[in-house]
Amino acid sequence: MPVRRGHVAPQNTFLDTIIRKFEGQSRKFIIANARVENCAVIYCNDGFCELCGYSRAEVMQRPCTCDFLHGPRTQRRAAAQIAQALLGAEERKVEIAFYRKDGSCFLCLVDVVPVKNEDGAVIMFILNFEVVMEKDMVGSPAHDTNHRGPPTSWLAPGRAKTFRLKLPALLALTARESSVRSGGAGGAGAPGAVVVDVDLTPAAPSSESLALDEVTAMDNHVAGLGPAEERRALVGPGSPPRSAPGQLPSPRAHSLNPDASGSSCSLARTRSRESCASVRRASSADDIEAMRAGVLPPPPRHASTGAMHPLRSGLLNSTSDSDLVRYRTISKIPQITLNFVDLKGDPFLASPTSDREIIAPKIKERTHNVTEKVTQVLSLGADVLPEYKLQAPRIHRWTILHYSPFKAVWDWLILLLVIYTAVFTPYSAAFLLKETEEGPPATECGYACQPLAVVDLIVDIMFIVDILINFRTTYVNANEEVVSHPGRIAVHYFKGWFLIDMVAAIPFDLLI
C-alpha cells in the first residue's frame, strides 16, 4: 500500500533555474538572501570558489559584500557603492579590487542584480563577478574607477581610450546646418538635424578633445543650467548677453562664444560640459537660429522629431539603469545623424518603425519583477520565466494532490484497515475457520451469522477504491517536481505499489 509523501509542494524551481543557467555559462556568482541580516550568502558556485580561493563552506553565510576579499588596494568608495546597491532595488555595476585567499590582487567587475517577489519586494541578490585585470595590471588604489561605466561593446579594446569628441564640431553647429540641408533625401539625416562627426583615429590627448566618459557625465550638469543662461549661451556672438549692473557675465554663455574659444586653444572642462549641455537642449539648428531671432517656433511634425517616441515608452518600462547606459552608448555611435529632440514631445505622434532597438522591449506582467540581467542570462521568455513566489501546480481535472487534506485522511483510514487485516486475518484463519468446520452448517442466516465476513468484505472494497484513487494521485519525481499527468501517474504506480495493492485487495476469504 503506498505511503508516498512529498510535502515540499507547491515547489518553486526558480532558484534552481537560475543556478542551472548560470552554471551553463561558466559564470562566477553568488546568491544572497536579502531578508536576513547583512544579506548572507546562501549559494556560491564553483567558479566563484576558484576565483577567490575560498571553499564553499568558508563563503556560505558570510555577508555578500565580500568584505573578506578586501585588501589594501580595495577602494572604500567601491565598497560603499556595493553596500548601497544592496540597500536599493536597481541593478548596478561596480569595479573593485579584490584579494584572493593567497593574497593576489585582481580588479573585478561586480554586477549586483536584485530579484523581487510578486509584491515588488527584493528577496534575493545575485552578484556576478568578472575579472577585468590581474594584480600586475591593477593601478594605484588612489585612482577611482567606479565613477565610470563599463566599456562599450562596439569599441575595440585597444581603442576604448582613444575615443574623442571634438569640441569644434559642437561649436560649428550653425555652420554645418547648410551642408545638412543640402544633403536632402540623399543624406542619412532628416531636415533640421545636426550631424556630429566623431574622430576615432588614435591621437595624443589634446586640450581640444573630450573623453567619452566626460560626455556621459554632461547629463548630470544640465539641471544646474538655468533657462535664461541656456538661451544666452545659444544666442551666440551676435547678441551678447546682458548683465545687470554690478553683475558679471555668465561664464556659461561665454563658453560657447566662437570668438572667445578661437582665441585660446584650450577650454576648461567645466565650460566644455556646460556648452555641450546647452546645445543638447535645442532640438535642431533651426531652433538655434530661432533663439537668435527671439522667436522659438513649435517643433515640426516630421520623422526626426518622432524618433524618440518609442524611446520614451522603453525608458518607462525599463527595469534597470543598464538600459540608460545602453541608450547613452548607442546615442554616441560615430558617423550617424543625431536628432536633438526633447523627450517631452507630442504624445499624438505616431511611433516610426526603427531597425535598431535601443531599449529592451516591454516586459510582460509575469516578468515585471525580474531584472534585465536575470532575463538576459536565463534566456527565457515571458511565458517560461515565473515570478519568485509559491505557485500552485497546474493539475488535470479529477486529480488528487498527494499533500491535500483528503489524501491525508484517506491514508490514515487505509492504515487502520491494514492494521485490522494484519490482526484479524490470522485470527480468523486459526480459530474461526476451525469452529466453522466443526459446527453445523448455517446457510440460512447468511452474513448475519458471520459479522467478521462483512467487515472483511468492506475492507476489500476499500482497498479496491484505494487502488483507483492512487491512479489519480500526484507524486514527486526525482527532481522534486509534482507530477499531475494521468499517464505518468499510471506508469509510476504500475512500477511501484500496484502489484502489492492488488494482492492485498483480493478477497481470499470469499474465494475459499
Rank of each mutant, 00 (worst) to 15 (best):
P2R: 05
P2C: 01
R4N: 14
H7M: 11
V8K: 10
P10D: 14
Q11P: 12
Q11D: 13
Q11M: 15
N12K: 12
L15V: 14
L15D: 01
D16A: 15
D16T: 06
T17I: 07
I18W: 10
I19Q: 03
K21P: 04
K21W: 08
S26F: 08
R27L: 06
R27K: 11
I30A: 01
I30R: 01
I31N: 01
A34G: 06
R35E: 13
E37N: 11
C39T: 06
A40T: 10
I42E: 01
E50K: 10
Y54L: 01
Y54H: 01
R56A: 07
E58Q: 12
M60E: 03
M60L: 14
C64E: 01
C64F: 02
T65N: 07
C66T: 01
L69H: 01
P72G: 01
T74C: 01
T74P: 01
R76V: 13
R77Q: 15
R77C: 06
A79I: 13
A79L: 13
A80C: 15
A83H: 04
A83T: 14
Q84I: 05
L87K: 12
R92H: 13
R92C: 13
R92P: 01
K93H: 07
K93D: 09
V94Y: 01
E95V: 08
I96Y: 01
F98W: 03
K101G: 01
G103I: 01
C108D: 01
D111S: 09
D111N: 13
V115C: 08
K116I: 13
N117T: 10
E118N: 07
D119M: 15
I123Y: 05
I123A: 15
I123C: 10
M124E: 01
F125W: 10
L127D: 01
N128A: 15
V132Y: 06
K135E: 05
K135F: 06
M137L: 15
V138L: 14
G139S: 15
P141R: 11
A142R: 07
H143N: 06
N146A: 11
N146Y: 15
R148K: 12
R148D: 07
G149A: 05
P150N: 07
P150I: 06
T152Y: 15
W154K: 15
L155A: 10
P157L: 14
P157K: 15
G158A: 14
R159A: 14
R159W: 12
T162G: 14
L170Y: 08
A175Y: 03
A175I: 01
S178K: 08
V180A: 13
R181D: 09
S182Y: 15
G183F: 06
G186I: 06
G187S: 15
A188H: 12
A188S: 06
G189A: 06
G192F: 01
A193H: 01
D197I: 01
D197H: 01
V198P: 01
V198C: 11
L200F: 06
T201G: 14
P202Y: 01
A203F: 06
P205T: 05
S206I: 12
S207I: 15
E208L: 06
L210A: 06
A211M: 15
A211I: 05
D213G: 06
E214P: 06
V215Q: 08
T216D: 06
A217M: 05
A217E: 13
D219P: 06
H221V: 10
V222S: 13
V222C: 09
A223E: 09
A223K: 14
E230P: 06
G236E: 13
G238V: 05
G238P: 05
G238L: 14
S239W: 04
S239R: 07
P240W: 15
P241D: 11
A244Y: 09
P245E: 14
L248K: 03
P249H: 13
P249Q: 09
P249L: 12
P251Q: 11
P251G: 11
H254Y: 13
S255L: 14
L256E: 11
P258T: 11
D259Y: 09
D259A: 07
A260M: 07
S261G: 11
S263C: 07
C265N: 13
S266A: 05
L267E: 06
A268E: 07
A268T: 11
R269K: 08
S272C: 07
R273I: 12
E274R: 07
S275D: 11
C276A: 03
A277N: 13
S283V: 11
S283T: 14
S283F: 07
D286S: 09
D286K: 05
I288R: 11
I288G: 08
A290S: 05
R292F: 03
A293P: 14
A293D: 04
G294K: 12
G294E: 12
L296V: 15
L296M: 14
P297R: 12
P298K: 09
P299Q: 14
P299T: 12
P300D: 14
H302P: 05
A303D: 05
S304M: 15
S304C: 12
S304I: 11
T305G: 12
G306H: 14
M308H: 05
H309G: 14
P310L: 08
R312Y: 11
S313T: 14
S313E: 07
G314R: 06
N317Y: 12
N317L: 08
N317T: 08
S318E: 13
T319D: 14
S320E: 07
D321N: 09
D321F: 04
D321Y: 09
L324R: 11
V325Q: 14
V325M: 14
R326V: 11
Y327S: 12
R328T: 12
I330Q: 14
S331E: 09
K332N: 08
K332P: 11
I336C: 15
L338K: 09
L338D: 14
N339R: 02
D342E: 07
D342T: 03
L343D: 05
L343I: 10
K344Y: 05
D346C: 09
P347I: 04
L349F: 15
S351P: 08
D355C: 15
E357R: 05
E357W: 06
I359A: 14
A360R: 11
A360G: 04
P361G: 09
K362V: 12
E365V: 14
E365C: 12
T367V: 09
T367A: 13
N369S: 14
V370L: 08
V370G: 04
T371S: 06
E372V: 04
E372A: 10
K373L: 07
V374I: 13
V374H: 15
L378C: 05
S379Y: 06
S379E: 03
L380N: 04
L380I: 04
L380H: 01
A382C: 12
L385Q: 07
P386N: 04
P386T: 01
